[in-house]
Structure formats: C-alpha cells, structure tokens
Design a protein around this nucleic acid. Structure first.
Lengths: 172, 172
DNA sequence: TATTGTTATACTCTATAACTATA
DNA sequence: TATAGTTATAGAGTATAACAATA
C-alpha cells in the first residue's frame, strides 16, 4: 500500500455520512441491567420528590439525618453516618448544614471527651414533622402509581437485594 | 425568671451528656421510603459491579453509550444523550472520554453541517463485547441472589415506576 | 496504638446559562 | 428565530489520606 492510498482511505473513513435512519432506538440489554434500571428509577423518584418540595425543603440526605436523630437522639456522628452508609468524612459538612440552619446541635459527652452527641433543636423537630408528613403523602402517590401492593413488593425486593449484596462485603 | 436563672439554664442545656444507650438504631420510616431504599440498593449494586470490574473497565455511563452505539451506529449526540437521559451538555466530556480512549468517533453529516454522527471504532466494539459478557455474567449473580424470577419481577416494577413517573413530566 | 472527629482534596454526576455555526 | 454541538461553571455526592485530641 502506497502513502497516497493510505491517505485516500483515511480521508474516506472520515467522510461525511448520511443522517441516521429515524427508526426506534435499540437499547440492547440496558433494560435488563439492574444498574441502569435503578439509575433511571432513582432519577424519576428524585424528580418527583423535587416537585413536591418546590420551596427548598431538606435535601434527601438532610431528611435522613433528621429522621435518625428524631428517633435516636444523642447518637454520635459515626453512628448516624454508619447507619445511613454515609462516609464519616462527608457527614461533617452535611451535619454542619443542619447546624447552620438551626436544626441540630452537637453536645460534648461526659465519659468520652472525643465524642459528640447529636440532637435536633425544637426547630429541627418541627421541620422534620412537617417534611415527614409531606414525604409520606408523596409515598402514597408512588403506591397509587404502581397500584395494589406493588410498592410493598418493590420495597421488599430492593431490601432483599441490598441485604444479599451487603453480605458479600462484610465489615472489616 | 431572673437573668441569672436564664444563664444557668442555658449553660445546663449545653452541658455534657451521657453517651447514647447502645440499643438498635431506629430507622423510622426510611425503610418505607422509595428514595432512600433506591439509594441503598443502587449503592450496593454499584459496589458489586465495581468488584467485577476491578481493572478499570468502562464506567456505567460509558458502557451505556457503547451499548447504544453498538446497536444504533450513526446516532447524533443529542439522540444518544436523550435516550439515556443524560444532559446534552454532560454528554460532551463523556463521549470525549471514549474518543480519547480510541473507542468511538464523531463524523460529519452530509445533509446537515451542524450535526455529528457517532460510531464505535473496532477497539470500541471489541471492548463493548468483552464488557457486555462480563456484565451479563454479573446480572446472573443478581438473579441468583434474589432467586427464582425475582430479578425479573424487580426489573418490571422499576420499569413501571419509571414510566408512571415520566408520564407526569411530559417533554415540552 | 487505636479511635473520634475533622480538614483537605479530588473526581464524578448533575444542572444552567450562554456561545458558535449552521438551518 | 430555532437547532446542534459545545464551553464554562457551579452544586451535590462520594472517596482517600492525614491530622489533632483523646483513649
């Protein structure tokens, strides 16, 4: 092959082509892949929640922390982060955002001067109660969309999946 | 109430407290909230995939693009981004990463000099085939973990949920 | 030495505004 | 005026290394 032929072929390979046929796009195996399907579902759910929380309520991670502290006042940062599967490190600015909004506080612990005990403020409890009511209402919308016990079936399958996969990566 | 009493109470409210009782942590309604349960499930699935792709295979988003272009060569960036629900804007660096690895190319389109047509290279096809085999094997692991048709049930519920929520936000 | 909370840092994902060249 | 691709940018989410105070 000469240099001229090589250059010609190269030019041809980069030539303009016709626009794609306007047929339905084939997703291949993506709709059977759990990672992809979960991403799409989570995006749809987050979008749906965003509509219900139009006026900048607590973000999902903030709401989760409020829930844990409402039920378990006095837990340590490591405990809350651990139970929510949030990195200890990333929990710091997350909790700071609640403190800055006056929703939660850190208190020292008598018996261990390294540790902190975390609590909701009165404002934090009030915001949590209000947000929890809205979240539960929204959950009923999901139940209605899926219909007839299917939300419960979906939750059960997701819990079982998460548990089965977690078993493979036991804590060190 | 005197000023002294008020200051005293304030000090008391900030006093050190005993460590939390070591009981099981109460998650409240979080296990019934789809957003939270989906996040946990997706994290578990991504972790599981990360183990199977130890040696830096394509990332999930890259693999999705490879899949679409393998089945639908010549689509435009907007079409691929649209079908994957990826922002047009964010698709650019994502596709660039494939081009830089020699896995995909952009070609001009005859009939519309604004448009691009996207294709996999031979290397891109080869990597996709290899990764697809690994992904499908991993999918079987999920099926085994859940057992007896439950993966199919889970996928069906997730598809139905995503579809039902998308209906509420029709494209402008 | 190990643990608790923290800082610094970096990378990915996502979202919005605005530019360019074409149509 | 609208469309296709792109740039710039900023906000979340997530991950690792390392530090100070304390155990």
């Amino acid at each position: 092959m000469t240099a001229g032929e090589s250059a010609k072929r190269k030019r041809k390979a980069l030539e303009a082509v016709e626009p794609p046929l306007e047929a339905a796009i084939d997703l291949g195996t993506l709709p059977r892949q759990l990672g992809y399907v979960l991403r799409r579902a989570q995006a749809a759910v987050i979008q749906s929640y965003a509509g219900a929380f139009a006026e900048a309520g607590p973000r999902p991670a903030q709401f989760a922390v409020l829930t844990i502290l409402d039920r378990n006042p006095g837990l340590s940062p490591s405990q809350v982060a651990g139970v929510l599967a949030i990195n200890r490190t990333n929990f710091v600015p997350l909790f700071d955002s609640l403190v800055q909004r006056g929703l939660a506080t850190r208190r020292p612990v008598k018996s261990n001067r390294r540790a902190h005990a975390l609590y909701l403020t009165a404002a934090g409890k009030a915001l949590f109660d209000k947000a929890a009511r809205r979240v539960n209402t929204h959950e009923q919308l999901f139940a209605a969309k899926l219909g007839d016990g299917d939300l419960e079936r979906l939750l059960e399958l997701l819990h079982r999946l998460t548990g089965a996969l977690a078993d493979n990566v036991p804590p060190a």
